[in-house]
């Protein structure tokens, strides 16, 4: 039995310990905001925070989750008003939107570490998150807006 917290709620899991956190979130507890795309930690669509750190849920097995706290896009803010979410709306970043929960979780983790990121900080932190629609220019703008740094 694996005990963990997801968005502040205590949970228990007794399925396949090799099951990645991604599929636990999506299939077992219906938190589908965390997306499946590559399954290999290559694209960042499944990014969540584990104990505060940006983590690829698709390559994080449940057996490593004992006692951990998971934050997903659904738990990032109560009203969709986290500064990163607000900036994403203001900049109208999303096109199809599929990768955006992962992008937002990655950006939120970056700003926690580096509240005033440089362009290079943004490139370094965000290059693990692919957007096939190509919204990168606005992602960069939105991260800066959320951080209150000059675009």
């Amino acid at each position: 039995m694996i005990k963990l917290k997801v968005n502040g709620v205590s949970r228990q899991f007794d399925g396949d310990p090799d099951m990645p956190l991604l599929w636990y979130l999506r299939d077992e507890i219906s938190l589908t905001g965390t997306k499946f795309s590559c399954g290999m930690g290559l694209c960042g669509s499944c990014t969540v925070h584990v104990n505060g750190a940006a983590t690829r849920a698709c390559v994080t097995p449940m057996k490593s989750m004992e006692g951990k706290a998971v934050l997903t896009i659904e738990g990032l803010s109560a009203k969709g008003d986290h500064p990163v979410q607000k900036a994403w709306k203001t900049c109208a970043v999303a096109q199809c939107g599929y990768c955006q929960p992962g992008q937002i979780m990655q950006a939120a983790a970056l700003l926690k570490q580096k509240p005033k990121p440089s362009d290079k900080d943004i490139d370094d932190a965000m290059q693990g998150n692919i957007c096939r629609c190509g919204t990168y220019q606005r992602i960069r703008q939105a991260v800066k807006l959320a951080a209150g740094v000059k675009a």
């Binding site: 965390t34 997903t72 896009i73 994403w88 709306k89 109208a92 999303a94 939107g97 599929y98 929960p101």
Partner: peptide, 18 residues
């Protein structure tokens, strides 16, 4: 704004995968 923008940034948008 696009009608789906709020759902997308909060993870509520429903895709085929969801």
């Amino acid at each position: 704004p696009m009608i789906d923008s709020e759902d997308i940034v909060t993870g509520k948008g429903t895709f085929g995968m969801d």
